[in-house]
Amino acid sequence: MLRIFHPTMIACSMFYEYRTRGGVVTTPPDTGPFTGRVAVITGAGSGIGRAATIAFAEAGAHVLGVGRRTEALHRTAQEHAGIAVLATDIRATNAGQAIIDAAVGRWARVDVLVNNAGATAVMPLADTVADRITEMFDLHVTAPSMLAHAALPHLRHTRGTIINISSTYGHRPVAGAAHYAASKAALEQLTRCWALELATDGIRVNALAPGPTESEALRAAGLPEPMVNQIKQDEAARIPLGRRGHPDDVARWVLRLADPAATWLTGQVLTVDGGLELT
Rank of each mutant, 00 (worst) to 15 (best):
S13R: 09
Y18G: 06
T20W: 02
G22I: 09
P28R: 12
R37A: 01
I48N: 00
V63Y: 14
L64W: 15
A77V: 06
I83N: 03
A84C: 14
A92G: 04
Q97I: 12
Q97M: 09
I100Q: 08
R106P: 06
A121C: 02
I133Q: 05
E135Y: 10
V141N: 07
S145H: 15
M146N: 08
M146Q: 14
A148H: 02
P153A: 08
H154W: 15
R159L: 02
G160N: 04
I165G: 00
S166V: 06
S167H: 04
R172Q: 11
S183L: 12
Q189Y: 14
R192F: 13
C193N: 15
A195S: 15
L196R: 14
L196F: 13
T200V: 14
I203A: 06
R204C: 05
V205G: 07
N206D: 13
N206K: 08
A209H: 08
P210E: 05
G211A: 02
P212F: 01
T213L: 02
E216T: 11
E225D: 12
N229G: 15
Q230P: 00
R244P: 01
G245P: 05
P247K: 06
A251R: 06
L257N: 04
P260E: 11
T263P: 01
V269H: 02
V272R: 00
E277N: 10
